[in-house]
Amino acid sequence: MIDVSLQLAVSDARRRFDLDLAFATDAPFIALYGPSGAGKSLTLQAMAGLLPVHAGHVKLDGRTLLDTATGVCLPPESRGVGYLFQQYALFPHLSVRDNIAFGLTSWRRRLQPADAARVDELIDAFGLAAMARSRPASLSGGQQQRVALARALARRPSLLLLDEPFAALHTSLRRELRDDLRELRRRLGIPAVIVSHDPDDVMALADEVFLLEGGQLRQRLRADDPGLRAALEGRP
């Protein structure tokens, strides 16, 4: 069960954006869908602990990650959340292997044997062995995505957050990686939340869809709803 209620505001010198939404679901793969600026990525960032929240809560299978009413606010590294950033956010100066291992190390300690084995397992699982010593600049978009996804999974998260994971990829590769991602989530058995403004991504992956607009939840639809495609395309 993913249970989220968020109220927050972000602003600069010119504008202010308010996010105010709530949803709870047992669906294994959900999508936050809407136009650019709807608040989709802000929702993911708040769930992951990357943004301050004025009021609300984030709970995962009964575990409280955030509850402003009781003062609970776990830091990002303690939330058990894997995050795939829209532009992958790989470290350009690190190799593929070191990028994947990054979340398992700190300035206080080096990679432990069990963690090193976990990195090797992910490198093999994602077909990255031949490029394990390469740096991100030498990789294709699809390869970079696999590295970023492996990094997100390195700490065995209880929830996977995916921010526009196919935005930088061409159409044929998107189809292939959608299939891979769907199978990966099923095999791992962990819930996932994907942010997208592409109807095809949503139709291919999501069990439940939340339509966002202007920082608010406007509609909730199941994958088998006959009106889903029309709702995604803005047709009556």
Rank of each mutant, 00 (worst) to 15 (best):
D124V: 08
T105D: 06
G103T: 12
I123R: 14
F85C: 11
R133Q: 05
N99V: 02
Q145C: 09
L153N: 03
V147L: 12
V119D: 13
G71V: 04
P75G: 11
P76D: 14
V72S: 00
L159V: 05
R79Y: 14
F126S: 05
C73F: 02
S134A: 14
G56F: 07
L139D: 04
A154G: 13
D120G: 01
R109M: 08
D98N: 02
L159M: 02
R110E: 06
P157I: 15
S78W: 10
R133L: 04
F85V: 14
Y88R: 03
D61Y: 00
L169F: 12
E77G: 07
R63G: 01
T70Q: 11
S140G: 13
A168W: 13
Q143D: 10
R108Q: 10
A114I: 06
E121Y: 05
R151F: 10
Y83T: 13
R109D: 08
G127P: 03
N99K: 03
V72Y: 02
A129G: 03
R146T: 05
Q145R: 14
G62N: 00
T68M: 02
I123Q: 09
V81N: 01
V147H: 07
P92Y: 04
S134F: 00
L111I: 07
T68H: 00
A69E: 11
D115P: 03
L65K: 04
H54V: 02
D61I: 00
D163C: 15
R63L: 00
L128D: 05
G142H: 06
L162T: 12
L161G: 08
V147Q: 09
G56W: 04
H93L: 00
D115V: 03
G71I: 03
H54Y: 01
L60N: 01
D120C: 01
V96W: 04
W107N: 04
A55S: 00
A137I: 02
L162Q: 09
